[in-house]
């Protein structure tokens, strides 16, 4: 019985580890060029602590707690640059190389001359978002049993207008206003 349990725990840990993409060192080097950096590294332990401190009476925290309860880790690297051309496709190519079928499935892919957006789902429930814009590069890796419903929740509940997110992430928005003018 104990052996069975041990094997099951090992298998679960292996599945979770497979969902975690190795973020290349090239990404961290981009931090020195970036105007703003968002770096989130939440492993299983910190996820557990974070959910413990979430308030069920606050709607956004309750929703986040519901989703976070299914996750084993969240890893984000997001860089915003002053000008275009601060990074190349080679900087994130190592990530793409890891997203091979049958483990990973590319569920959404949108490419234009300047922008690339890709969403990959792991067969055991993990998620990877790769968003490459002229002045912004974002990689989101979610480890755990995330469902389509959770994605909808994330997009709806937390997909608040860009400006609000940037304020919370302490990203300056002034240059964007200049650009609009």
């Amino acid at each position: 019985m104990k052996t069975k349990l041990f094997v099951m725990v090992l298998a679960a840990a292996g599945m979770m580890a497979a969902q975690q993409v190795k973020l290349p060192a090239a990404l961290d080097k981009l931090a020195s060029k970036a105007k703003e950096v968002t770096n989130v590294t939440l492993g299983p332990e910190l996820m557990g602590i974070a959910t413990k401190f979430m308030d069920d009476n606050k709607s956004d925290e309750a929703e986040a707690k519901k989703i976070a309860g299914k996750l084993r880790g969240v890893y984000i690297r997001s860089y915003e640059f002053e000008k275009e051309g601060e990074y190349t496709e080679a900087d994130y190519a190592e990530i793409r190389d890891q997203l091979k079928p049958p483990e990973w499935t590319n569920i959404v892919s949108s490419r234009s001359k300047k922008e690339t957006s890709e969403i990959y789902m792991h067969r055991d429930g993990g998620l990877l978002i790769l968003s490459a814009e002229p002045r912004e590069l974002t990689v989101v890796n979610i480890v755990g049993k995330i469902t389509a419903e959770d994605l909808g929740g994330l997009s709806g509940q937390f997909g608040v207008p860009n400006v609000v997110v940037k304020e919370k992430a302490k990203v300056k928005i002034k240059p964007e206003k200049d650009e609009e003018e």
């Binding site: 969240v74 959404v108 994605l151 994330l154 860009n162």
Partner: peptide
């Protein structure tokens, strides 16, 4: 530590949500 982790997680979900919305 818990409050910091919670804030980090909320920012992570917001970044994820925003990116999902942009792709959509």
């Amino acid at each position: 530590r818990g409050e910091e982790a919670k804030q980090e997680l909320m920012v992570a979900f917001q970044v994820t949500g925003t990116k999902l919305r942009q792709v959509e």
